[in-house]
């Protein structure tokens, strides 16, 4: 597919053209970098170009609590949710692959999450090539795929933009700030430095280590704060609650909330029985879901190697290090 070029000085024009028809979400610097909606030109100066944002784009696809349906005694009614067309800008390859993995889980042959599907169909994924990893990430070990609509590679004066999908190409054609170019993406452009850290051999053999006592080293430090789950771009587990109305109690809506496997409440079932009582079991469950269980089902690891679970952990529990030492 053809490549495009965006001059850096035209970025503001690019933004104003995009924001005519789309919401524009980009990594915005603040006390902590996170993906926020860009509403004016001034916010463009706050875009984080270099470092991986601590907060992933997850909240766009999986809000804190979202209504699934409305009920009235015995009848249920769909919730009208028409997501606006959105451009998700500045996603790194790890974030993009996390969306790819989320697609596998939530939009497959057996099951399609209509809310997720609608959001995905109305969003355009614009990647930003990551030049250098940080001390926690290890995406180079995780066999990531080129999964994006458009991908920006930064050069001195401009961005060379690679298009990957028809959706991305259609979008690029509409935006006049983007010009077609014959320049190809060089192998040099695709390099990401300092992004390997995990012992791949051990990662592939992780099933053998399930009974290892070494996991205790990590789990005994765990504070059960759920930061690892909340910061993970690919964790997608959820739970449901009912929210009745106050005056007409038989009416209400069912809400979907994000859940966390690091807590006892995650496995609490009828009779107040908890089947993953030990902290060590919960600690292992997250890692095994990421590296083994998902792979058994979908052929790839759920983990994308962004390292946020370690970077955002108050105790910096480095499970990669623990695994490497197995």
């Amino acid at each position: 597919m053809s490549n495009y070029v965006l001059q850096k000085e035209e970025f503001s024009a690019f933004f104003s053209q995009v924001s005519e028809n789309y919401d524009f979400i980009a990594p915005i610097k603040g006390k902590e970098t996170s993906f926020e909606k860009v509403t004016n030109d001034d916010m463009l100066n706050l875009i984080e170009w270099d470092e991986l944002p601590l907060f992933p784009i997850k909240h766009f696809f999986q809000p804190k609590d979202e209504p699934i349906f409305k009920y009235d005694k015995t009848t249920a009614k769909d919730v009208n949710s028409k997501p606006r067309k959105t451009v998700l800008f500045g996603l790194r390859l790890c974030d993009l692959n996390a969306i790819h993995h989320r697609d596998m889980a939530l939009m497959n042959e057996d099951f399609t999450d209509p809310f997720y599907k609608e959001r995905r169909e109305n969003s355009i994924l614009i990647g930003l090539h990551c030049k250098k990893g940080d001390e926690y990430c290890f995406c180079g070990d995780m066999d990531l795929h080129d999964f994006f609509d458009l991908m920006l590679y930064e050069h001195d004066e401009c961005f060379i933009i690679e298009t990957k999908t028809d959706k991305g190409l259609k979008f690029a054609k509409k935006i006049t700030a983007l010009d077609r170019t014959d320049k190809a993406i060089h192998a040099n452009d695709r390099i990401t430095e300092n992004n390997t850290r995990i012992d791949k051999e051990k990662m592939n053999k992780i099933a053998d280590f399930f009974t290892s006592e070494k996991w205790e080293e990590g789990s005994k430090l765990c504070l059960s704060c759920t930061a690892c789950n909340m910061l993970c771009p690919s964790c997608y587990c959820f739970e449901f609650t009912d929210e009745p109305e106050l005056v007409l109690l038989h009416k209400g809506q069912r809400m979907r909330n994000i859940s966390s496997c690091q807590l006892k409440c995650f496995t609490r079932v009828a009779g107040d029985f908890v089947f993953r009582k030990e902290k060590n079991d919960r600690f292992k469950h997250r890692i095994y879901h990421q590296l083994q269980y998902f792979k058994e089902k979908h052929g790839v690891t759920l983990c994308v190697g962004c390292g946020r679970c370690i970077r955002g952990c108050p105790k910096r529990i480095d499970w990669v290090d623990i695994l490497n030492k197995m």
Partner: peptide, 18 residues
């Protein structure tokens, strides 16, 4: 409510005060 304060704090995308 059976989750810690950090759960909601992280969902609100606050910088960790620790």
């Amino acid at each position: 409510f059976d989750k810690p304060v950090c759960y909601e704090c992280k969902l609100n995308r606050n910088r960790c005060l620790l």
